[in-house]
Design a protein around this nucleic acid. Structure first.
Lengths: 174, 174
DNA sequence: ACCTTTTACTTCATTAATGAAATATGACTT
DNA sequence: AAGTCATATTTCATTAATGAAGTAAAAGGT
């Protein structure tokens, strides 16, 4: 695959040329937009590659990690949908595959029998504890040459961007 | 859909809890990772929503814009693959749909008859000039409250991150 | 000139991920 | 108890990306 920095270079040139035809283009912002999209999708790919040996996809991994982070490794499909930003249909499928692999169990809730109680099994916990730490060097590597200030800045700016995304999504669509 | 800021809050809590069970987790970096992934995919979704009325998906839009940015609105499938970071198979499909809509044409090249010359039609140019500018407020909106320094910083940090991604991808996989 | 390899794309089949709508069940309201 | 809402699942369809094999043209060695 082509280097991301190369793609970014080509993107910069492209925006430059489009900007010359359409001067009203907010070039700086468009560049940031593309940068965020490009790095985001590369990171997705990188993550997918890391997960492949474990036969997990992004949403399965995320669900597993979220469940792992819950008190008693327990939650419900509805809650997991919210936490993992997934549709109910997908969550059912994800739970199916994780149950099949013995990493979680589905049980019925006492108080509300509509609810399904999802619990991480001991095998599931072992699995997470084995597969997660080897990813740390990769996570660290992404920010090796970042100073502490850089990290704080990036965090601040991405959170700021996130707030703006929310604003836009809440504003009534014209 | 749940607000992104809310998802981020939940993510922060999740990382915090996982970090208590697995202290070796590089929490700050993991947070940045998730932040980048989450904002990236929200921006994808936002873009997809903007493109939907025009019946375009991301790769079709990107291809169209790249072609628009080329001298004489002309290129070849191979070049477009590189510029849009797409496989040849996908590019064929994309070109098919864009040809069907009359936005581009496929012709054969003079010098190298293996090559296919892809050209943007007048209709294609009109289409881009109509559909692109209305997206500017959206692009601007993402960065409304960003100072010029903020934008420069974000650009710098994302480019830095991109270089690290390249490093990781080039390093021999263990 | 002839054979092999490489390049450039296309076609067809397959997989992955998700979404929409219908269904079953239980809980809550009045 | 009747009607409404909430939770989860199943079924079906859609969308998008990907892989394997095929076609055609050009390049290069002998």
């Amino acid at each position: 695959m082509a280097r991301l920095t190369h793609c970014i270079m080509l993107m910069d040139e492209g925006i430059e040329r489009v900007n010359q035809i359409i001067p009203s283009l907010p070039a700086m912002e468009a560049r940031l937009c593309r940068l965020a999209l490009m790095t985001g999708s590369r990171m997705e790919e990188g993550l997918a590659a890391k997960l492949k040996p474990y036969k997990l996809n992004h949403s399965e991994f995320l669900t597993l990690m979220i469940l792992y982070s819950r008190p008693h490794g327990s939650s419900t499909p509805g809650e997991l949908c919210e936490l993992a930003t997934q549709g109910a249909t997908n969550m059912t499928r994800i739970a199916n595959t994780l149950v099949k692999r013995g990493l979680i169990t589905r049980g019925s809730s006492e108080e509300d029998r509509r609810r399904v109680q999802i619990r991480m099994t001991a095998a599931g916990q072992r699995f997470v504890q084995q597969m997660f730490p080897p990813m740390f060097p990769h996570i660290d590597g992404l920010f090796t040459d970042f100073s502490e200030a850089d990290k704080r800045q990036l965090g601040r700016l991405l959170r700021k961007l996130a707030r703006n995304i929310d604003e836009i999504n809440e504003a009534p669509m014209p």
